[in-house]
Amino acid sequence: MKLFGILLSRHGVAALFLSMLLAACTVVVDDGPRPRPPRPDSQFCTREYQPVCARRGGDRQTFANPCLADRAGYRVVSPGQCRDGGGGGGGPAFCTREYAPVCATRRGSARTFPNACEARAANWRIVDNEPC
């Protein structure tokens, strides 16, 4: 009975009101475990040469290996280098691994390639003989 009297007193009502207010302001959100999206910048790729043709949207590009394509956000569509649209032209281009970076453009996008051969093999137009 004494507890009931304290709760109805002026101090008891204020304490009860503040407790309810505090409880109403406390929100716990638990979305549970979520898979982390891959971070392309932290993915390690080997330097093996196993060329693949990969696509992202309407853009097709040849990569030295599937890991590099995945890291760039492309999906591998076939082994080997990408062929030009009609499939009627010479064989695949083989480029050296020299590092002489060039800046190339295609469809309004600019990209740095390790060398001019790789830029041309991917059907990009070279605009500068240094990185973009």
Results as ranks from 00 to 15, higher is better:
51 P>V: 07
1 M>N: 03
24 A>M: 13
116 A>T: 11
2 K>Y: 02
35 P>W: 08
21 L>F: 00
54 A>P: 04
48 E>T: 07
55 R>L: 04
10 R>T: 04
63 F>E: 05
60 R>P: 07
107 R>N: 15
116 A>D: 14
5 G>Y: 08
78 S>R: 14
64 A>G: 10
57 G>W: 07
90 G>S: 06
104 A>H: 02
91 G>I: 02
17 F>T: 06
108 G>T: 12
100 A>L: 11
73 G>P: 06
70 D>T: 01
76 V>Y: 00
52 V>M: 03
20 M>E: 00
17 F>Y: 10
66 P>F: 00
42 S>I: 08
16 L>K: 01
62 T>K: 05
61 Q>E: 05
82 C>K: 00
19 S>Y: 05
48 E>M: 03
102 V>H: 03
82 C>F: 00
56 R>I: 01
4 F>H: 03
103 C>F: 10
130 E>Q: 03
11 H>W: 07
121 A>R: 03
91 G>S: 07
115 N>Q: 03
126 I>E: 09
60 R>T: 15
14 A>K: 06
104 A>M: 05
122 A>P: 00
116 A>S: 13
67 C>A: 04
128 D>S: 15
35 P>A: 08
106 R>F: 04
117 C>L: 06
72 A>D: 02
41 D>K: 12
19 S>M: 15
30 D>E: 06
12 G>L: 05
78 S>K: 10
4 F>W: 02
111 R>M: 10
115 N>W: 02
18 L>Y: 13
74 Y>L: 00
104 A>V: 04
101 P>E: 03
63 F>D: 07
119 A>Q: 01
117 C>W: 03
117 C>R: 10
20 M>F: 09
17 F>K: 00
66 P>K: 02
61 Q>R: 11
49 Y>C: 04
72 A>V: 01
32 G>R: 00
3 L>I: 13
59 D>Q: 01
116 A>R: 15
40 P>D: 02
11 H>K: 09
17 F>M: 05
39 R>G: 03
111 R>H: 14
67 C>H: 04
39 R>F: 13
31 D>P: 05
99 Y>N: 14
38 P>C: 09
105 T>F: 12
21 L>Y: 03
20 M>R: 01
88 G>Y: 15
77 V>Q: 11
45 C>F: 09
89 G>A: 05
